[in-house]
Each structure stands twice: as structure tokens, then as C-alpha cells.
Write a protein that binds this DNA or RNA. Structure first.
Lengths: 342, 342
DNA sequence: CTGAAAGCGCTTACAG
DNA sequence: CTGAAAGCGCTTACAG
């Protein structure tokens, strides 16, 4: 069924050179004369030959593969579109650098380090998604011990030469966003989003929010911080709880767009108008954010850049170069849900 | 840096058997006595040994890898969450069967067959996403010629022993959904969604829609079929065009949820109430569909099942078994946007 | 049931 | 600049 498998020996025979020369020519080795190289590459193209990756990897003791681990909650099985958008960008970037991308969607509870330690499936790891810090930290230690390079999104974890991280300006942007709401005359604030070691990003956003309130002399009430994971349902429930406790609120800062969308649904169901009765803002700028009504004011994270940087940092680490963690810039997207003028 | 690489020879030495016996024991070969096998597997576990996949694959001439190609539009770079949900399910299923999953996000224009033909990167291919039929069909022919097994979502293409396809009950469900709207006393219908050979799924939904109208004696006006690809923006623009042409309409059937979300935004911006002035229904039941206000009436495709079936069908094909294409069942999700009673 | 041996298709010192 | 040769770590006939 399968056609005859062309090998480097076939190319060598056709080109009248040795198999080693073919191997060199195809890897663009400067050892091979330009003319020989051109001819060999032409013949390879004509015969539809591509290097057998398994053989190449076995011999070179490399995998030319990046692995991406997307940790997901087992309860809320619906994955945050934000991570999927990064995933897509990582895939592009990896391909652009000649790496394959192995994707694994991991349950929180599973012990994923084992898989990648000695299995020689990938040269390095990109870690995305939510996590249970208890087991997570232990697994990171295991990863480091194995010498596997890895890059994490959204969690400050840096071991020079082994691992790095990328995150975005969570705190600054949350401060700016909140300040914008204050400028729009909102005075009674609530924050919806879990803050814990398991979610440093939300925690930084909360800190930025608190800074903005403090710098404008607005008092903060711990009862107006409602915990919620990143989903519409938890956002909905959080706002129901918030409204039930009866405190005066005129602006809700949500730790993510998914939460904000749930929040807007809850307000709608209570007959409250956004932004007339209540301003709502989110975070991430998911594609849907511009299509909700009112359109959602939020903070744009550049997922294309994030994915590209994740891949590049990992490849540098694999190549033995050190990389510095980076905080990527974000953009405020002022739309209607915050009560903007137009 | 990297720890000493344990090989099957190390296990053999420790267990006092030959390397071949270790290899057999780890592959659960019935040739090895139960006791020897248990002991070898225990030692392997103790030493943290895992089979080197590159060597194993090279020797066995297999890859234990499934590839998933997600074709995306270059203009609308934001990927349909529906496909990403299937992707996640495929990843789970592949892992469950001991396969790795290689993910590639492909631009429409690229010639992707080449990559997988001789590169020995994957044993088979899953094809998802939109496509340009002109080049697509030619590439499928190339794939078949190479003998690579593949499974397609949403496009009837079946070559016994080589390829298969999976789709859902597009036509029946669109007929039912439209009939439901008719039962709710809607009489003036529009359909938004591109129908062309490039998008057989939308085309089947359109056919189901037409059947429902015909069976209730409702006349169809070609001017009330507006083309749109699956995005909020195109849905928005389509509805603007629809309203501009001034015909009486009281229900819009959208070929996807993304289109429906754009449609609802456009109606909102024109001051029209959904479902009071206009019913809107979608297709896919994206997670967001239950959180729009009004919540979106739509058709649920079981992405978990779809992903699992895609992986299983492909694995069967790889194993040389024939598989029959399947049409997966769907569920009507009646919510508020159609003007339901409660 | 077990072992010795060949070989998958490459890459890379080593020698010239 | 090129070639002959070794060997990456397995799997799998072949022989016993």
C-alpha cells in the first residue's frame, strides 16, 4: 500500500555521492560544496524525499519537538479560549522554527512530569493553564531535576538556564482600568475573581485594582471581593451573591472576560442595566468581548505575541541560552460596558 | 546536565536477562513468562525507565502519533471555539490509546500534504476546519495516493480502507429547529450562512431549513438568504444587509452560533428586540450560547463524542480495519432567543 | 520461554 | 570537501 520508502541511500546512488554527503547536504552543512549541495537538494526534491525524523532524532539524540501542556479543570471542562488562542500561536511559532508541537490536555490531578522526563518525546515543555499549586510545585521541582527546559505562562518561576516564565502586565493594567472607571465617576466597587497562590494572575489584577482605589482614597470592603474561577457560570453566581448581600455597588471589575460575561448575564436577569446601573469590565479581550451588548471594556493580551515568545524562549533554553522572564505589554480596550462617553 | 539515560540494556543487566527479553516484557508479549515480565516491569519502574520512542518507532516503522490539521482562514485568524473543543477531545482520546497528538494550524493556501507524506511524523491525519475546495480536493487525492489514513470532519469523503469522515445530523436538525420556529408562529424567515461546496455543513443546514419551510407551505425568497462565514463580524454585517433591504423578517436562522452572536449584536444596535421583534437561532451550542442575553437557541453538537470518534476511526484505519462514516446525533437546545414560552 | 544477532535510517567523529 | 564506518536504542525474525 505505502509507496517505496526513499532513503538517503537512494539519493546518494542517484547523485553519485556517499550517503554521508547526502546527509550533510540536506542539513546545509558548510562542509559540502555549494554545487554538490544544490544538486543533492534538487534530487531529493524530485524524488519527494524527506529525512526520516525518527532515525534522525534517534541518532542526534534530539526530538525537534516542543510539548505544550494545557492544564484544565476537571469540573469545568470547557477550556478558556484565551489559552487556545495562545496554543494556536505557539503551534505557528514552533512550526516556523522547525519544531513539532505535541499537545496534551492534562487533568489537574495527574502526574504529568513522569511522561516527559525520560520518554524523550520533546526537548522542552510549555505550561499553560490553571493549576493546583500543591501538587504543581512538587512537579516543577521534578522537572527541574530532570533538566528538561520549560516555560510557564503566568506564574513567576525562573531557574536560570532551565526554566523561565512569561506573563503580562496584570497589575499595572488592572490599576489603569480601575482608574478609568474612577474617572468615569464610579465610586462603589466590587471585584470578582479568585485570588490565591493557584492564580497569581488574578491576584496581581486584584492588587492593581486595590492600588487604584487606594490612590483615589476609595475605601475597600472585603465583602465586595467575591471569589470566582474563570468561567461564565462562576461569574454569574458571584454577581448573584454580590447583589444578594445588598451593598451599594456601581462598578464590577472582573478578573476575566468569561467572568464578566457571566456577570452581565446575571445583571440582565435582575433587570439591571449595564452600564447605566452598573459598569462591568473584564480582562483578556476574547473575540466575543467586542460582540456582547454592551460591548465589553477589557484589557487586551496579545496572544499572538505571547505564543510566539513562549516558543522562542523555550527554544533558546533548549539551545542552552539563558533567557530573562518577560512581562508583555497589554492594551486597554475601552468599549461600552464601563459607561464610556460614546 | 541531563541525567544518565537508562536503556533496556541497563534493565536487562539488573534483571539478569537479555535485552530482547526486556523489550518483550515491556511490550507485554505473551512470549515472556508472567513472573519474568512482572519482575522486569518492576525494575523498569524502579529505575524510572521508559522506552525511547524514537528508537522504538524507527525500528517498528511506526510513529504512534496522530496528526491533527486545523485549517484556518488567514483573514479571520480567530479560530472557531467549536473546533478547539473537538481538538481537546481528540487529544484526550489519542492519549488514551497511547498515541501522541501532533497539532498543526494550517493556512488554507499552504500545501500540507507534502509534510505528512514521507516525513513519517504521524500514522494518520485528522482534518478539521474550513477549506478552499479547489486546492483541498487535489490535496486529498495526494493523501490517498500516499496511503496515509485520514478522517475528515464535516465533509463526505470516504475511500474504504484509507479515509473516512464524521459529521453531524446537519440537515435533520436544521429542519427541526426551523420547524420549531414555525410552531412558535414565525412566518418570515431569513437564513444567514455561506452555502457552497467549501462548506457542506452550512449547505446541509440550509437544505434542512428549506425543507421545513416547504413542508409548512412557507415561501422562500432567495433575497433572504445572506451569505456569511462563521464569525460574529460576518453575522453582524449580514444582518445589517438584511435589514437594509427592507423585507419583512421575524426570524433569522444562522448557520452557526458565531454568526448568531453577531446577528444579535446588529439587531441590538438597530434597537430591535430579540426575540420580541426578531427570533434568532444558531448552531453548535458554544459555551457562550447559554450566557448571551437572550440565551441562544441552538443545536448542540457533542464535541466530546466527535473528538473521540475521530481518533477512534483514525486508529482503526491505521490498524487496517475499515470503518463506516457516521453521522453523529445532535440535540436541540431551546433557549430564549427563539421566543420560547418561558 | 529466552537469547544472539541483524538492522531500522540516519548523524558524526575520524581519516584522507 | 568527501567517504567508510560506527552506533543511536530499540524490535523482531531466527534458532534453540
Amino acid at each position: 500500500m505505502k509507496p517505496f520508502k526513499t532513503t538517503s541511500l537512494d539519493i546518494a546512488a542517484r547523485a553519485g555521492v556517499s550517503q554521508s554527503t547526502v546527509s550533510r547536504a540536506l542539513r546545509n552543512s558548510p562542509q559540502v560544496s555549494a554545487e554538490t549541495r544544490r544538486q543533492i537538494q534538487r534530487i531529493a526534491r524530485e524524488m519527494g524525499y524527506t529525512v526520516d525524523r525518527n532515525a534522525s532524532r534517534l541518532r542526534a539524540k534530539t526530538t525537534s519537538t516542543l510539548a505544550l501542556l494545557l492544564c484544565e479543570d476537571e469540573i469545568e471542562s470547557h477550556i478558556n479560549p484565551f489559552f487556545l488562542s495562545i496554543l494556536s500561536s505557539v503551534a505557528h511559532a514552533a512550526a516556523g522554527h522547525g519544531y513539532d508541537l505535541l499537545v496534551t490536555f492534562q487533568q489537574l490531578s495527574e502526574n504529568w512530569v513522569m511522561d516527559f522526563q525520560d520518554a524523550h518525546r520533546a526537548d522542552g515543555l510549555i505550561l499553560l493553564g490553571i493549576r493546583d499549586r500543591e501538587s504543581y510545585d512538587a512537579q516543577l521541582v521534578g522537572l527541574e531535576a530532570s533538566g528538561t527546559p520549560f516555560v510557564i505562562w503566568g506564574l513567576e518561576h525562573h531557574v536560570p538556564g532551565v526554566s523561565s516564565y512569561l506573563t503580562c502586565q496584570n497589575q499595572e493594567s488592572a490599576r489603569e482600568l480601575t482608574s478609568h472607571l474612577i474617572r468615569l465617576k464610579h465610586r462603589h466597587f466590587a471585584f470578582v475573581g479568585v485570588t490565591s497562590t493557584a492564580n497569581p494572575e488574578f491576584t496581581h489584577r486584584y492588587e492593581g485594582y486595590l492600588e487604584a482605589l487606594a490612590s483615589h482614597g476609595i475605601e475597600t470592603d472585603p465583602g465586595l471581593h467575591i471569589s470566582a474561577n474563570s468561567s461564565e457560570t462562576e461569574g454569574y453566581d458571584a454577581v448573584e451573591a454580590l447583589l444578594a448581600n445588598g451593598r451599594k455597588v456601581d462598578a464590577i471589575v472582573c478578573a476575566s472576560d468569561l467572568i464578566a460575561i457571566g456577570a452581565m448575564a446575571a445583571l440582565h436577569d435582575r433587570g439591571l442595566d449595564v452600564p447605566g446601573d452598573m459598569a462591568v469590565v473584564g480582562y483578556d479581550d476574547l473575540p466575543i468581548a467586542q460582540h456582547t451588548r454592551p460591548a465589553l471594556t477589557t484589557v487586551r493580551q496579545d496572544t499572538e505575541l505571547a505564543g510566539r515568545k513562549l516558543a522562542e524562549h523555550l527554544i533558546h533554553l533548549i539551545d542552552g541560552q539563558d533567557v530573562q522572564p518577560e512581562e508583555l505589554p497589554v492594551t486597554l480596550m475601552i468599549r461600552q460596558s464601563c459607561g464610556a462617553r460614546d
